[in-house]
Nucleic acid binder design. Structure first.
Lengths: 183, 183
DNA sequence: TCCTGATGAGACATTCATGTCTCATGTGGG
DNA sequence: CCCACATGAGACATGAATGTCTCATCAGGA
């Protein structure tokens, strides 16, 4: 019956997103399969995490594609990007913290590609004169990750409404907390 | 010779900040003591983490006190606050991620007090007409935590210069990425 | 209907961090 | 000088998660 690998992966993502220390047994139960079958699909926790990483990268790439980062104003592209990434934010937050554990090992090159694409968008915004130039694209990229993680966490905790997710992040990232003298 | 408890605590903070899964044995070695002695000081990993939590709370409270959040313009107070919190940012990031594991248990009330004080500062900024009102104080507080964690991480990874830490965070948090039409 | 293959349940061994205990050592104070 | 005490080193037991294996069952296809 060829277990639905994608279903298992997404169940695991949903669970580990909430409880990053969940047991393989819990992951299996969450997916509605036995530990044995889970282990037949993913031969070990690290394999599972790597698969989740690949899933996260895939989702990010897809989100970036759909966001068309090269079209129109950079600020609008950022807004589209955040909106597209939102569904994957919790997974990203999990992988973000999990990455810190892969100390020695080289990180998946996929992240480098994604970092580059996002940084390129910020760089374009600067070149277009839309974004300020004293905040480096690398920092803006890092900050975006941080805000996505905070946002996902705050939503999960019920401290902000899910509907406000994109608005909160985009407005803070682009506009900041200070009032604008003029729009 | 009464082991220097504070030294042990700070060594542990420095290590766990970099490698959150470090063993009690590694923590002991990092502090230059044996595992037995470490265990005499902190009877278990959770006790150690709780002690680190208390340390983090203490540092935050101190930073908030020194930042005088009720003095002058709210934006300046935020800047002082970030500057004061900076040395503890890595510890905060560790505790921030560690907190997610204390699922059921009630979180230390100290955090609630700190959250309140920070949120109050943002609220004052809004009341003074300095901050925009469509970003809730709760979200601004969460975002600040997220940016502190991202910033500490980015500095540790060498992606941003340590000297730029405060500037990067404050400017993004308050001003955002968009260029101001006028200062 | 029968056969093949995937699955679930569970036993079992292994690894690792941890908690606990003992004992020798070495230092500082009386 | 001698004693008390903290420490370091290490042995040992424990618990948890994991990896591995077997076997019965069940469903789908020939």
């Amino acid at each position: 019956m060829a277990v639905d690998r994608d279903h298992v992966l997404r169940s695991a993502a949903a669970l580990l997103t909430r409880k990053s220390t969940a047991t393989m047994d819990e992951v299996a139960k969450a997916a509605g399969i036995s530990r044995a079958t889970l282990h037949r699909q993913f031969a070990g926790r690290d394999v599972l995490v790597r698969a989740l990483e690949a899933l996260g990268i895939q989702e990010c790439e897809g989100a970036l594609d759909r966001a068309r980062p090269d079209d129109g104003r950079a600020s609008e592209a950022v807004r589209r990007m955040v909106r597209e990434i939102e569904p994957a934010a919790a997974l990203l937050a999990f992988l973000y913290s999990e990455n810190q554990l892969f100390e020695g090992e080289e990180q998946n090159e996929g992240w480098a590609r994604i970092d580059d694409r996002i940084a390129a968008l910020f760089r374009r915004g600067q070149a277009d004169g839309e974004f300020r130039i004293d905040l480096t694209p690398a920092w803006l990229t890092e900050a975006l990750y941080g805000l996505l993680a905070s946002g996902a966490w705050a939503v999960a905790e019920g401290r902000v409404a899910r509907n406000d997710f994109t608005h909160m992040i985009v407005e803070l990232l682009l506009g900041g907390a200070l009032r604008r003298e003029e729009s």
